[in-house]
């Protein structure tokens, strides 16, 4: 089998697995008819939409499939970061003192999925909003900026989030 068609098969299988697990979670029934219908629909949708779910150029296996343990730990890191920065934004709402800046920095993450996850994590923590993402170049609006230096700003905004995502994907 040629590598290209093998990769296509893997992509269809991965899409199918995700859809089937979501079906089981949402339907919540273990009747044979329900499971059969769910699996058939998952296969149909996977065969249509595998190409937009996992793009062809993401051929490195560890740029798509997350590692299990860091993935389970990641939500806790994210929620802790969210509450920490929420407290800071709460303080600046009360005092009315802000120092907004637009900072540009680069990320060391290599896969598309990891970069999107980092942009989502930056936006999810109050006080920072990612405004643009072009390859590895992030444009972030930062409410309480402490520095204008690009790399230092990147370290403060990304901080632990990038390290946590780097453990999941490359």
């Amino acid at each position: 089998m040629r590598p290209r068609s093998l990769w296509k098969l893997i992509r269809v299988a991965a899409t199918f697995a995700v859809l089937a697990v979501l079906w089981l979670l949402f339907s919540g029934s273990l009747e044979p008819a329900a499971i059969f219908a769910g699996l058939c629909c998952s296969l149909l949708i996977a065969s249509i939409s595998y190409d937009s779910f996992i793009e062809e150029h993401e051929a490195a296996r560890n740029s798509i499939f997350p590692r299990l343990l860091p993935t389970l730990a990641y939500p806790f890191v994210l929620v802790a970061a969210m509450y920490a920065s929420s407290a800071k934004v709460l303080a600046s709402v009360v005092t009315g003192r802000v120092n907004p800046r637009v900072v540009h920095f680069r990320s060391r993450l290599r896969s598309d999925l990891a970069r999107v996850a980092l942009a989502e994590a930056i936006t999810f923590t109050p006080g920072t909003i990612s405004m643009d993402l072009d390859e590895d170049h992030f444009v972030v609006h930062w409410l309480n900026a402490t520095t204008r230096h690009s790399a230092r700003a990147g370290d403060e905004v990304k901080g632990t989030l990038e390290a946590a995502i780097k453990r999941i994907w490359v």
């Binding site: 969210m82 709402v93 936006t123 999810f124 109050p126 909003i129």
Partner: peptide
């Protein structure tokens, strides 16, 4: 807050946290 971006930051306190 005065400007749209900072207002968006404040609203993320409601919308997210």
């Amino acid at each position: 807050f005065a400007d749209p971006y900072t207002r968006l930051q404040a609203s993320s306190l409601t919308g997210t946290t």
